[in-house]
Design a binder for these strands. Structure first.
Length: 221
DNA sequence: CCCTGATTCGC
DNA sequence: GCGAATCAGG
């Protein structure tokens, strides 16, 4: 997966919305939690309550020499030159402007955002549901319309325990559907696909080569 | 152990 | 630029 504009946008929205890196990675798919965090940092959006928060306040306390225990798993051939540790950037001089806390009390408490869903809508936690919260985004959210390719096909919504749910094609494709045949009684598939799904266990040495995988095998792009 | 984000560093 | 490995706190 690559970081397309849309994926970056989603990442940004969700990150700022308070979703965890895991949630974001999960939502986007194809990326790990670390990838999300790394990307977020590269994008310059960080500063969120982290479990391991940077030490604030004055460092005046004379600490013992903080042994840089940066034990690298793979020690290179040449030992790293023990150069002077990169000096921490001094924080920019904070202007001692008196910031009145008058406007610190919002009269309209914002709903607690739990995560940001697809399309950018904001999910909320239980208990926050009373407010008529974020008005439906006036943006272009087009109702999912069945594609023309799916006409007459068995879709996920058509599945019940009487029709064969053997997948035809790949999920996500416009014509992805299910077999739809009348089921082999007691099985989730039709007689035909039961033959594919259930293989008799033959004695060792008499195994037949495995049948082709469902879905037509690994995807080749 | 699970979770979290931060950081490093080879690619 | 990317992300696995690692660190470190909860």
């Amino acid at each position: 997966m690559s970081w397309t504009d849309e994926r970056i946008e989603r990442l940004t929205k969700m990150w700022e919305g308070g979703s965890t890196a895991s949630q974001i990675a999960d939502e986007l798919g194809g990326v790990s939690r670390n990838a999300v965090i790394g990307k977020a940092h590269r994008l310059g959006l960080k500063a969120r309550p982290s479990p391991v928060k940077a030490n604030d306040k004055d460092e005046a306390a004379p600490k013992a020499a903080p042994a840089p225990k940066v034990a690298k798993p793979a020690e290179p051939k040449a030992a790293k030159i023990p150069s002077e540790p990169a000096p921490r950037l001094a924080p920019p001089p904070r202007a001692p402007v008196a910031t009145p806390a008058v406007n610190a009390a919002p009269s309209t408490p914002q709903p607690r955002i739990v995560s940001v869903g697809p399309g950018g809508f904001l999910r909320q936690g239980p208990g926050d549901q009373q407010a008529p919260i974020p008005p439906a985004p006036p943006r272009r959210l087009v109702p999912a319309k069945p594609s023309a390719e799916i006409h007459g096909k068995t879709t996920l919504l058509d599945l019940n325990d009487r029709i064969c749910r053997w997948p035809m094609g790949h999920p996500g494709e416009p014509d992805f559907h299910f077999c739809g045949e009348k089921v082999n009684p007691g099985f989730p598939y039709c007689v035909d696909h039961c033959g594919r799904a259930y293989q008799a266990q033959l004695p060792r040495g008499h195994r037949r080569p495995p049948p082709p995988l469902p879905f037509g095998g690994p995807r080749v792009r």
